[in-house]
Design a protein around this nucleic acid. Sequence first.
DNA 1: CATGAATGAGGCTTCATTCAT
DNA 2: AATGAATGAAGCCTCATTCAT
Lengths: 194, 194, 194, 194
Amino acid sequence: MKLSEKKALKKKEEIILSAVKIMNRKGYHGATMEDIAAELLMTKGALYYYFRNKEDIIFKCHELVLTRAIEELETYLYEDSTNEEKLRKMIYTHIDYAIGEKETFNMISKPDHTFSKEQLKPILSKRIAYASVFDRVIQQGIESKEFTVDEPKFVRMILLGAMNWIQQWYNAEGGKSIEELQKIYADYLLKVVK
Amino acid sequence: MKLSEKKALKKKEEIILSAVKIMNRKGYHGATMEDIAAELLMTKGALYYYFRNKEDIIFKCHELVLTRAIEELETYLYEDSTNEEKLRKMIYTHIDYAIGEKETFNMISKPDHTFSKEQLKPILSKRIAYASVFDRVIQQGIESKEFTVDEPKFVRMILLGAMNWIQQWYNAEGGKSIEELQKIYADYLLKVVK
Amino acid sequence: MKLSEKKALKKKEEIILSAVKIMNRKGYHGATMEDIAAELLMTKGALYYYFRNKEDIIFKCHELVLTRAIEELETYLYEDSTNEEKLRKMIYTHIDYAIGEKETFNMISKPDHTFSKEQLKPILSKRIAYASVFDRVIQQGIESKEFTVDEPKFVRMILLGAMNWIQQWYNAEGGKSIEELQKIYADYLLKVVK
Amino acid sequence: MKLSEKKALKKKEEIILSAVKIMNRKGYHGATMEDIAAELLMTKGALYYYFRNKEDIIFKCHELVLTRAIEELETYLYEDSTNEEKLRKMIYTHIDYAIGEKETFNMISKPDHTFSKEQLKPILSKRIAYASVFDRVIQQGIESKEFTVDEPKFVRMILLGAMNWIQQWYNAEGGKSIEELQKIYADYLLKVVK
DNA sequence: CATGAATGAGGCTTCATTCAT
DNA sequence: AATGAATGAAGCCTCATTCAT
């Protein structure tokens, strides 16, 4: 890969990160191309050199964050430990992302209100891929008798929903630290699968 | 109250319900004043006779739905039954609202992205009021030794988060009926407090 | 029809006429919504109350002008006179329109560069309808032995092309009057069909 | 002339030809610098090494095409044959250019909408030079009594207009071949001058 | 020479809001 | 009480043009 291509990739990522930041501050609709550009001391127009349109930026935000998160989750899946331990680590990781990447992570509620048809499909695939990592560890736990679960899909949705909601109220300043939060959530959520 | 005032109140409610319907279909930003009016065969301008602005309509949507939901929840609180039974009924009710009123119920994620300062406060109060009904039944359950919970606030947020997430994926057509869903969710969520 | 509807129709026509005027001055691409609105002392936004978008305005321009021209041509077709006389009148009329309505008349060269698919079809139909009035008088003239023409379609295109070209160079100030022009063109073009 | 200069000249011509091609496909306004460059596997920026701006490219397109066409026409002017025969050959040639070079030939309707003042003058001169070749053959025909024409300027405009219009409807696929077209047009147009 | 990157002006369009009637 | 009409701000996007490297 040529140097210039590397630079371009880096810029793309910078833009994505800027978009994430603005969206976390103002929400998807509140985040304008102007805002995203200003954060990087660029002009609106320059964004269009790197991305086709706004939707494309948001799309790539999702893709980036989800891809990373999936990779991280999968490392736990193949670790040598109990499934309970694996699930606990995945919960910790999910909370990290949910707090750190907020809007972009998986809380674009109703993606069909935001994305056009062509982009909707890959987004949904990625989400399913993400969810399926949880599904696999739950399944393994059932098989190893660590977990007692009749409705694994719903349990997975309960876990993810509970964690995603953190984004609604979490605020860096108040109360518990992230680490405390992670422990509390993991403890309670593991009760669901036991 | 004069007849004309009554009529006005009725109209206001009609507008709110129309707004709810449109928002459930198109999301908050997708719902235009035009849409809301068209649903009622009115013109945009007329809406401003009843509400100061768009924000005000959304605000009243929330207030209406939350007020009703709180009232319903509170009837369970004073029923003569176990706290587990009370919580189960509250879970059923919450899911009913979450599915039926979608956008308007409590999923205006980040209300601070939508509401101005003046309106934010009463909205947040109402949400707190809503949450506190759950808090009270959890507290009672702890006191009566039915529940074992160290972090009641977080448990409440886990319950609400898990249920609110239903809105993200629920679709009238597929799979389980609402009644099945309610039972499954109640069963698993009660494991959290036990 | 209600008064308000009449007013709206009138406004629509005013807008169309403004658009025609601006387009004659600056060409299709040079004519901005801003320009069209300013001519009428309106704001850009107001135009969208009457038309869906720019293309729609241009479309209606064409429709209006062509419809009127076709009507006028057809009155000659059914007059009681020789076909030579009819064709002469039609030539006079065409030149009137070509000079007066310029851009809008039929010189949107390559309409497929300007119009989207849906609008292209009716535009082309109207153009064909217009041309067919000429075709009919030529056909009648052939049948009555007034004209000697082997290739009536090409002759019609020669006539229309020759006249449309006037738009390219005609300038109110210079040289001949419109009336002189009409006579000259009619005299020479009739030689083609004789 | 140095090799490098020769190369530059060749590149310039390539760019012009590319521009012509794109403009024929998409029209003047539809042809972007990007398009023109992409056709040659260059980048936008490089075009500015060879031409001052877009207008300049278009300008040179015209100049090139018109210059060539004038040269070709003039060879006929000095041939040893009847003026009718000369005019016929010129008609054939004009139709060749009109179909082959479309946008660039002389159908930039309203050149004053496209060109700035400085460039307008040479363009118009060239067009006049082109027209004057027709004028001369018509004049010669009048003098030799081959043609009967009172208004030679208008006749010339009728001929050119009729032929230029071919660009509006001609389509490589349908109906007559170019050769048939040329014959038909020549036959009918010669009736105008007889 | 050429490229990649950026700029900035300008265009189209949407929409909450206002207001005379 | 309601309507039709208009406003104006703001957003997205395109593209000719520039320029450091």
